[in-house]
Design a protein around this nucleic acid. Structure first.
Lengths: 221, 221, 221, 221
DNA sequence: CATGAATGAGTATTCATTCAT
DNA sequence: CATGAATGAATACTCATTCAT
């Protein structure tokens, strides 16, 4: 091939990556703002220099960009979480690092937060984090928890419920955090990990509050 | 009006209620299966003996049935939860009763479960339960928690994060529960309430697991 | 039949007429406001104490009330015009009386005016006045004009064009009149009849203005 | 852009114009036959090689094509009338030229005639010609008439009534003309202008026919 | 004859996707 | 590989009319 051709190829490769990135970036915003159902492909390409048809040179369908976006988030998040877990030497660190990593990721990528925020319920079971990558990520975490139980670091309790609860707390606290004026992932992580750690540690000890026979102020319905 | 008229009116009223119920029932299923965005009005009426236009004799729009459904669930659930809270004399009972009521409701109404399951993210922040009724319900719960804190039954901690976490655990454990072969709301409620109670009670005590310097078996990514 | 039955029959007949009138009255307003196309049968019955189905006890279709309305107007107008014509002893009186009657009728029945106003173009050719009654009415007028021509009272000119022009002037002046603050059928009739009379009388005399070689001030654009 | 691109653009532009014209042409016929209310967008595109959606690449709505059509007619007609008026040196010429131009335009564009014919009443007052262009056109004519009155060429009489009458005669004679086997704009224009000119000239002279005490043959109703 | 809920064909419009250039 | 016009199936909703009561 001629030099000219090589340059063209280089240029093309460059443009290819650019275009793909531009579409992904636009799609992230659009899905965040309008949700998958409300968004149209034209909404996406309109935030781009590209033409309608070009979209289909990079993605097979609307569904397809959405998946790519979720995969992207899932992959990044999974990697970070995995790294965080490996850096932990105690179960507490394991938990706190995980929460911290999770909260920090979305604090740093608010577009991604709003993307999944606006599209919960899409993508089957346990879509606390999106995509298939996530299933794997959750599975990894479960294995670590099981290992901790096996070593006696954590009392024996229903692993699936515990795993689900971790996700549930993570998601709920994330929502609350993202709505605050001043977003503080560290504080959020501290709260979540303390709640979970105390919950796990004190789990089977018949909770001491049992005798606190306080009459709750029943507020009117 | 004559007796004849009364009968007519009675009969009509009966049919009216029937049709409305039929539409709601069909809509519940359709929204559960396809989600709000994916569902069409024709999908709904097709599961009915009724004609297209009849739908609009009972509801103004697709949005409108969806709201009615959510209101229905929200109202029922709110009432049950309120009742459960009032029956509690300790904070622990308060928490466990709430979880139990919540899990039982969806165990008994799986259609409703799948409905909200497929439509999370619709209806803004903290849509652990759907609709406007629910905002009120969550607010009630928050007030009770604050009251418990004021009385010293519960340590002082970030109420909003705690409230969010309650919702998060409820939702996550619910999902897990509904996927099991044998659905056991009591077991689920016991797990969730113990986790939360222990978490709350042990919260500020610097978690005893801190010294459990176990090396977690880091499983490969 | 019993006395009771007779009363009932009487009552019914009374109601029948009443209901029909009520529907016509409502329809007149609705068609005037929304036009035939924009009006719905429900718009009509909504301005009535009656139920949807009752409409079809009195009229076969939406089209049908519309026709009835036009026939009503046509018949009334035709009768008045006929009467006015018979009271005339000169062609000028004939013309002026006709215009005056026509303008007065709509000045007195603004609902009817707006009804036809909003529904021009409906009902084929020459719908200066609506309905089939009107065709007959126009035909009568044409015959009178032809008679006047035969007697030499009016110069020989294209009867159809003249007849059409009479209608055209009538309609156009009517519109203008109805838009004025103070509605004055007499003034309108005077204008229209003078214009037409002078036009007819001076018709074949090669119009004296021919030599008025005035340069018209051509306004811009 | 390359030569190839230019050709492409050229071709596309050509097709664009073609399609737009095809839609307008089809719409003209459909609106003429069925009226605006009775016509459907599908009726229009069905008379075209195009697909449903293509319609909306060229026009925003059904209303929108209708407007475009009326604007087209209005603009053309206004230009021709303006030209005709400027070519006149006497008021008589002014009037006759205007009528002749008007009648000729519709004789040459029967589709346009039937379009407005079927859609009278749409577009408010004095819709002798359609659209907003026309309001301006009528206004121009009114100014010329006023100028003629100021110069004494035309007797002082109610300008609004006169203007309205001009329109009324124009429309009515047009209808009559279009229904004849042999369409002759010149004859129609001659009739209309003579009628109006004589009417205007003889207006205030108390019409000489006043003493023609002919007994009109009153034909039976 | 009154009622008003039921009917379902019909409407304008949108949008993911294709394809000629 | 880019373009953007063309496509047409699909959607929410309306309304004249029917009919059981």
């Amino acid at each position: 091939m001629s030099v000219q051709n090589q340059l063209q190829t280089g240029r093309r490769a460059f443009n290819r990556a650019d275009n793909r990135a531009a579409i992904l970036q636009a799609a992230r915003q659009v899905f965040a703002e309008l949700g998958f159902g409300g968004a149209t492909v034209r909404d996406i390409i309109r935030r781009t220099n590209l033409a309608t048809g070009t979209f289909y040179n990079y993605f097979d369908s609307k569904e397809s960009v959405f998946s790519a976006l979720n995969d992207e988030i899932g992959t990044e998040l999974r990697a970070k979480l995995s790294e965080a877990r490996h850096a932990a030497s105690t179960f507490e660190q394991f938990v706190e690092n995980s929460f911290y990593t999770y909260f920090t990721y979305y604090a740093d990528n608010p577009d991604s937060y709003w993307l999944i925020r606006s599209n919960r319920g899409r993508g089957g079971h346990n879509s606390v984090m999106p995509g298939p990558q996530v299933q794997a990520g959750l599975e990894e975490m479960r294995k670590d928890i099981e290992a901790a139980m096996a070593e006696g670091v954590v009392p024996q309790l229903d692993v699936d419920y515990l795993n689900a609860s971790l996700g549930g707390v993570a998601f709920a606290v994330l929502d609350e955090m993202m709505e605050r004026k001043s977003i503080d992932p560290q504080a959020a992580a501290r709260f979540a990990s303390r709640l979970i750690m105390a919950g796990v540690d004190g789990f089977d000890g018949q909770s001491g509050a049992a005798d606190a026979s306080v009459t709750l102020a029943a507020n009117g319905s």
